[in-house]
Amino acid sequence: MKGKWRKRVWPLAVLLLTAVFAGQLAPWDPWEMTVPFLRPCWAHPLGTNDVGQDILSELLYGARTSLLVGVAAALVTTAFGSFFGACAAWFGGWADRCATVLINMALAVPSLPLVIVLSVFLKRSVWNLILCICLTSWAGTARVVRARAMQLREMGFLRSCRTMGCGSLYTITRHLLPNLKELIFTKGILSVASAILTETSISYLGLGPLTSKSWGTILNDAFRAGGILNGYWWWYLPPAACISLTVFCFLSLRDGREKKG
């Protein structure tokens, strides 16, 4: 089983290393402007864009943005959503009812349009984008964790904790949440994939950070400069493939984890 797990992890490890060592791997500075609209050649394996920036280098640096946004947003939403859901289940009563109303309200709002609206009114930076994604995508995790925590709350070991006088915070963090780790991990993985897709969508719409490269921005540039109509596949296909494969890798990691569990 461990071997299969490794098989699922290594593509992501490669992606992570690519993101971390983008500066060393990229043949050019992605902001350096040379000759525009070059086709793939030895110097520029994926050609250059409309201002002469090397598309391969943009792609490598884009991995950094996508992973940063994906992982950071997923960490925050998963941590907050899990804690919120667990608290709601543990305290029950009016606290649970209020939490449920809040979760349902958050789920009722379509997240992508809301992220778009928020992006328009905030300064265009990676951290604000992460904030927007966090604000709109914690509710799914909270709901799932709450439902499972409701079941666990009635189990013997948690009743014992309560009888022994353990504090709520201690019980939630030491006993309740650790017993939900498989579920939380699965939701976390899904959140990474979802956050990456949201980030690329926002960047594709031209609302992404101005000072960092992203796969969505590359697609936006290609679309705006007629890359798709004119068949410049080397411009739009690689970022599209990177997005699809990254999301696929994260989803397959989740599947493997579920199977292992």
């Binding site: 890359g227 798709i228 109509l229 004119n230 068949g231 410049y232 596949w233 739009y236 296909l237 599209a240 493939a241 699809s244």
Partner: peptide, 12 residues
């Protein structure tokens, strides 16, 4: 799907 996307663009 990606290949079909590529085919959507006319050859340059």
């Amino acid at each position: 799907l990606m290949v079909s996307l590529a085919a959507c663009g006319s050859p340059s």
